[in-house]
Design a protein around this nucleic acid. Sequence first.
DNA 1: GGGATATGTTGGAGACAACAACAATCCACG
DNA 2: CGTGGATTGTTGTTGTCTCCAACATATCCC
Lengths: 409, 409
Amino acid sequence: MSGRRGEGGRQAAGHPSASGSGPSAGTAQSVRNANLSAVLTLLFRGGPQSRAALARATGRNRSTIASLVGDLVAMGLASEDEAAPDGQVGRPSPVVSVSGEVAAIAVNPEIDELRVALVGLDGSVLRLLRRRYDTIPTAGEVLDATTVAVAALRGEGPACVGIGCAVPGQVRSADGVVRNAPHLRWIDEPFGQPLAEATGLPVRVANDASLGAIAEQCFGAGRGASNVLYLNGGASGIGGGAVVAGRPLAGAHGYAGEFGHIRVSSAEAGDSAGIAGTLEAMVTRAELLAVLGLAPADADRLHEALLADRTPAVRAVVERQLGHLATGLAAAVNVLNPQVVALGGFLASLLAYDPDGLRQAVAGSSLRPSDEDVEITASELGWRLLLIGAAMTAFEPLLANPAPVGRDG
Amino acid sequence: MSGRRGEGGRQAAGHPSASGSGPSAGTAQSVRNANLSAVLTLLFRGGPQSRAALARATGRNRSTIASLVGDLVAMGLASEDEAAPDGQVGRPSPVVSVSGEVAAIAVNPEIDELRVALVGLDGSVLRLLRRRYDTIPTAGEVLDATTVAVAALRGEGPACVGIGCAVPGQVRSADGVVRNAPHLRWIDEPFGQPLAEATGLPVRVANDASLGAIAEQCFGAGRGASNVLYLNGGASGIGGGAVVAGRPLAGAHGYAGEFGHIRVSSAEAGDSAGIAGTLEAMVTRAELLAVLGLAPADADRLHEALLADRTPAVRAVVERQLGHLATGLAAAVNVLNPQVVALGGFLASLLAYDPDGLRQAVAGSSLRPSDEDVEITASELGWRLLLIGAAMTAFEPLLANPAPVGRDG
DNA sequence: GGGATATGTTGGAGACAACAACAATCCACG
DNA sequence: CGTGGATTGTTGTTGTCTCCAACATATCCC
């Protein structure tokens, strides 16, 4: 009668202690940790703020905030500046910012390019290294190139707290093994562990669109919403990710968010996984490029070309794709009931072609009362999206459990 | 540049303080509260346990557990029994159980029946009142009948801490308004608030299948798994709910989990919401009953009849429905990556007809590596499912924030 | 320049879990 | 039947952390 599956009641219990790390939660130190985490997270997400603002936001006492900020400064995670008089009465409150001396490394391998960036705790991309590939790189090649790039970036100013990798494929979150990245043709390639051993830094690996969803929810179109859906259309297909109740939707093993492989049609055409009639199979950038007379290399011009060309041939293709996109979005909306749906890549172009049409089609196939409708909008973060998302994963342990950082890792 | 949507950063932040209630989290009292909640939740989910077991499970000190249990007993939420020697060496540890004097009321209106039950904190259905309807009841009728039933049940022994309602439709979680219950033909019917005013008890209202998912994850087929999907097939259609990362999937407004309205076919047939080709439209109990030569009233015999009849006509219908069900399940699995999928109602009958066929069809349309496949199984809790789920919602505030209970509410 | 307002600072108080030492109870073994 | 070993309950103390109150500081308004 009692549980079978390994962890049993512990993991299953929907307890507090949301972010599982840190002191076991329930002790006095865990209170300190939770408060440090709350303040640091507030600074990370909300930017520089006065101590008074932090006190209001957290509900803590002034003296407590002073102590917490002092600790964060001592840890090298934050800095305080004298407040410029802002026109308010009363003694001015020092402005606290996240430290500029703390950064993470974001890694994003694609079929034709590897990007490795140094991203500051304030969300700025401090330095970006790009390496182009003429042929699809193997996992080994990417690992080697990444290791070299990481070494170069660590020589820069800020202290590096970890590495986050955004991989276009399914990643087992537990150990960072890339289970299946069809476009890179990686199958069961260990990635997180070898990179961690080569660099000596903690490494997290996740699906690219899942990280995009996190970034978009935190700093982009989904700002302020707790339930955000992100879908991206690229050369290779459609990836997706979601933030549910303020937290990344991972699923049991980290494979959640494969919206591209929802079936939206009875057609025979298959997607990269061989499943027929899926969103990814029916809504493709290649078809749009073809009907617009553009070459695959002209993808950058897709957006403008699409909006400029309203000929019947284009219209027919776009409207068919919009219909399938609406079906897929409706399914996702019915299941997750998000507040914001952010579309990236050529899906944003499709949206721009006929925003109202898509919104109405989704509303027509979903169950939501119209006055509580979802907001379907374009992604906002552009090329920085995945880098920021990857860096956020790397920062996450630090935000959940603030600890001193130094130049020696 | 800063957030627009009302609550802004606060709600959006993926902080600790998972269950939002209780002392503001970060204070010493919140530690006490979190530990009381942890112990009570452990007792609720894991049944009677020794103090030593509680200490191991929570990681707290023996003396802390003694104090916590003492508080819970003083609050009337738990009781201690002298331990019967269990064959272990050492001083025997008292067994702690959840109090038998605490209960909640579960309400479940259907088109032909209203069920109101008194459910103990130990999960037992202490008393069940049923009221049959010849015509579909209005919200007002159900409210009146429920109020009467609640008054009767409160006269019983245990103290009642609240009311949980499982409604077959979309419920706005914030205020308990039934936005759209197509089979009951309720549209925008206030339910939670009037019931709370009539009874003086806190009321929570939610979609029936969402509550079923919670119950199944806690006590049924999903025991021990943190990511569980539940789909139920009834006379009126297909409802669904999910538990994600150990917590109910609610979405922005509480409408998440409408798996029945995922499109799985290009067919024209519409579902109760008028959307064509959805899972609910293509997979129906009525069609199964018809091909089996059973009347709608014979639904109870569907399961046996289906398994006994392997004629081509039945086979054709069942296999077509299984195909559509697989498509819908695959979409849900791709999006949520659950560990367990529990099927209830006639969906469990379909599963029993060809378990391997359905599992393979889902595997073929989903992206999961086969060795980390999901477990597709039948629901376990039967008729008590929704009552337990509804009661769990009612107990939830108490579990998150243990407080004294008494006979006077 | 004085009053009002808001905030930083400091010392003390309260709450709570951890710890250590001791007491209680059971099993195993001879 | 008695002794030793093991596990757990109990008690008093300690350390940590937040809160509170009083005071100091800095700005704005008149």
